[in-house]
Each structure stands twice: as structure tokens, then as C-alpha cells.
Write a protein that binds this DNA or RNA. Structure first.
Lengths: 107, 107
DNA sequence: AGTCTACGTATAGACAGCCTACATATAGGA
DNA sequence: TCCTATATGTAGGCTGTCTATACGTAGACT
């Protein structure tokens, strides 16, 4: 997976993976890897800053917890985050449609 | 169309639009706009450097021509460019599949 | 003649997000 | 003790896209 290709889609991925249930950063990385069948292996240096950005934007709410002696920062989707996710999904459709219409070899 | 989203896909777009016939930069921009139904309106500051990159990589061959008193640099796809385009197409499929599998709300 | 728009190529510098590499720390098994 | 998995985070680099600008021709309109 080309690194540049992810640009601008990371936020949609994070919001989407948090739609079902709140997760902490490490679990989010695993969820992305599992859901994509191993194609998405996102480094921590990408995820943690992105989560902070989304929190600052009001799309996520983070909270510290302790589980088995380890500190975790668990993020949940806010209402604004849900709205943003819907927007990201339609943007994704428009994006793939636009690129696809050019890349399609049949035309 | 978010600018960051284009990152890493520009080269595929350029190669694809040149698959049928050689075109010059200005015509490429128009072709992208038309093929995408207006969704892709790429500025010259993006296209011209990208064309030079692809030429340097050996995927395009550029040639100066004069038409109606105007200088044009026409680019055609090389054999290596065709191979690269095929690779870009399969990369695009893998990319949309990976992102789609995460973004799909049904899972 | 002067102005405007479309055509056509190109560069400089700003911007931003993803990356690598590193730092820190606990738990548990070999 | 050492290694791996778990867990969060930052600093700095990289690079491709963008905005803004520059240059120039052709043709239409006033």
C-alpha cells in the first residue's frame, strides 16, 4: 500500500472503525489490519497524531483508562463525528467515482 | 474534491488519460475534467511538474510542437508507461478494496 | 488601439499529512 | 535476564499538491 495513497482518507478510516464501539489507539491499528485483510498496516506515528486531530476537531472524545496495569486512551465517536463520517463516506464515493471514471480502460 | 485525496493517484490519472492518444498538458487537464464529469479540476501547478516527473521516470516521452503559433509539449505513453499504468490500475483496485472494506457500514 | 478571454507552459514557495525512528513503560513467558 | 506483545507519544523528514505568479500568442469585442 503506497503511503501517499492514504492521504486524506485516514480520518475516514478512523471514524469508521470507531462507529461500532469505542477503541484505544493500539486496538484501532489492529482493527484496521483485520478489517482490510492485512492491507492496512498503519504505523503508530500516523494514528496517534490523527486521533488527536480528530479529538481537537470535536469528532472524537478521548478518555484515559487503566486495564491490566496499562494506560489506555479510549476514543469514542461524538455526534459531530457521526455526521463527519457520513460526509466522509459520500466524499469517498465521489472520489472513487471520479478517479474510476478516468482509470476505467473501457472508455 | 479534497486536494490531499489526490495524493498518489495523480500519476495513474495522467498515464490513463494518455493511453488512447498523446496529448499536451492543457488538453490533459481538460480531458480529466471532462472524463470525471467536472469533478477533477487539476491546476497547472500540479500537472506540469507531474508530467515532468513521469517523463524523468521514463513513463512518458515529451516532444515540442507548434500549433497555430502556440508552443505545445505533447506527451505520449512509453512501453514502460503502459506497464506502469497496468500496475497503477491493480494498485487502485487494491486500494479501494482495502479502504472500502473498512468504510463499508454493513460490517 | 486597447482590453479581455482562452490557450499554453512553467516555476517558487507554502502547506500538511504520512512516514521513520526513537523514547518510554508494563506484563508475561522462555 | 531477555524478549515479545501491549500501549502511547514526539521530532523531524519527505514529498506531492496547492496558490500565486510570470510569460507569451491568438482572436474577439469595443
Amino acid at each position: 500500500m503506497n503511503a501517499d495513497a492514504l492521504r486524506g482518507h485516514m480520518e475516514a478510516l478512523l471514524l469508521s472503525v470507531l462507529e461500532r464501539e469505542p477503541l484505544h489507539g493500539y486496538a484501532i491499528i489492529e482493527a484496521l489490519r483485520e478489517r482490510s485483510g492485512g492491507a492496512l498496516d498503519v504505523p503508530t506515528g500516523t494514528v496517534y497524531p490523527a486521533l488527536r486531530r480528530l479529538e481537537s476537531a470535536g469528532y472524537l472524545a478521548g478518555e484515559w483508562a487503566v486495564s491490566g496495569g496499562r494506560k489506555r486512551r479510549t476514543y469514542r465517536l461524538t455526534d459531530a463525528g457521526r455526521t463527519a463520517l457520513a460526509g466522509e463516506r459520500s466524499a469517498w464515493k465521489a472520489f472513487t467515482s471520479a478517479i474510476g471514471s478516468v482509470l476505467d480502460p473501457s472508455r
